[in-house]
Amino acid sequence: MPEPIVLEQVLDGGRVDAAVFALCPDYRAVLLAVDGLVPGPSDEAGEELLRTAEAAARRALDDRPVERLPHVAAWREVYRAFGAKPQRTRNSLEALLRRAASGLPRVNRLTDLYNAVSVLHQIPLGGEDLARYRGAPRLLRATGEEPFDTVAGGEAVIEHPEPGEVVWCDEAGVTCRRWNWRQGRRTQLREDTTTALFVLDALHPVTDEALHAAAEDLAAHLERLGPDVRIARRLFTAGTTFDQGD
């Protein structure tokens, strides 16, 4: 029987390497580790939240293209800074906003929830299944040798990030490429997920208050997904730096 996951230990072991903050000193992240979730497929509560998010996206894009939204524009600049082409590899927030007019994806209860919160607060947000995670989360600049478990052409494949690419990793490999572009297959949220890790990313002009408001909103929705839901939280800023290899 696997050892129970201690949420606080997962977050205490988390790292954002100094090289990431050297690239982007104003980067901040809130991580939520959650257990006690009652799993399931997409439901009516998620559907209502997604519809609200779709309407909010349409209003936000009524007078400007998506790339002109301040937080989307900030992420495009950061992508260019580590060599990614934002026209080809869009951050998760931009990708969702571009889909909102025709309808956000319906995936499962947890994914629907965090996608809606991401759009409503205009903050990139990712989710991982902690039962399939290995060790603690780490954000670093890749060597190019780290394995990334994904799907290409309908087949499971192992890819590798570009050297210098900013990636989230655990001890087994990359869990999300290009900061918040594409999540791996191994740790993706599923309909049977009961314990999860959520990452909220922020750059200027998003304020600390706005970042924490998004985290509070996510936590409030998660707490409704079971009577025994428990949430641990940690903020990463430039004051919590670690050199790669520590």
Rank of each mutant, 00 (worst) to 15 (best):
G126Y: 09
L125A: 07
D201P: 08
T187V: 12
L125E: 02
T143W: 11
L139D: 03
A142M: 06
L140P: 12
R134K: 13
P147F: 06
R186L: 01
P161M: 04
H212F: 15
E216V: 10
P161I: 07
E209F: 11
E191K: 12
A136R: 05
V199A: 12
V166L: 06
F198Q: 09
W181K: 07
R186A: 00
A196Y: 04
W181T: 13
E128T: 15
L211T: 01
V206Q: 09
E159G: 07
T194G: 08
A156Y: 12
V174M: 03
D129K: 01
V174D: 01
P137E: 02
V199I: 15
R186Q: 02
G164I: 03
G135N: 06
G144D: 07
A136D: 05
A172T: 11
G135D: 05
V166N: 05
A152S: 11
G144A: 08
V174I: 02
L203P: 05
E145T: 12
T150L: 03
R177C: 03
N180K: 06
G153N: 10
T175Q: 10
L130R: 00
R182M: 14
E128G: 13
P137H: 05
D201M: 14
T193C: 02
V167H: 02
T175L: 10
Q183M: 14
V167L: 04
E216R: 14
F148K: 00
R182H: 10
V157R: 00
R190A: 11
A210I: 10
Q188M: 15
C176Q: 08
D201W: 11
H204T: 15
V166M: 07
H160C: 09
E159T: 08
I158Y: 01
L197T: 01
C169W: 09
E162V: 15
Y133H: 02
C169E: 10
R182D: 07
P161K: 05
E159L: 15
R178T: 13
L130D: 00
F148A: 03
G144I: 06
D192H: 11
H204M: 14
R132T: 08
E171R: 15
T207C: 13
P137R: 04
P137D: 03
L125H: 05
C169F: 10
L197Q: 06
R186Y: 00
A136H: 06
L211P: 02
V157D: 00
R138M: 12
E155M: 14
G164V: 07
R134Y: 08
L125T: 10
I158E: 00
L125D: 05
R178A: 12
G126N: 15
Q183I: 14
L197A: 07
T175H: 04
P147D: 06
E159P: 04
C169I: 14
Q183D: 13
E171G: 13
E209I: 08
L200C: 06
E191A: 10
D217R: 14
L140S: 13
Y133G: 01
A202D: 07
T175V: 15
V157F: 00
G154Y: 02
E165R: 05
F148H: 02
E146W: 06
G164P: 06
E128W: 15
G126C: 14
N180E: 09
L203V: 06
N180V: 11
T193S: 02
G144S: 02
W179C: 13
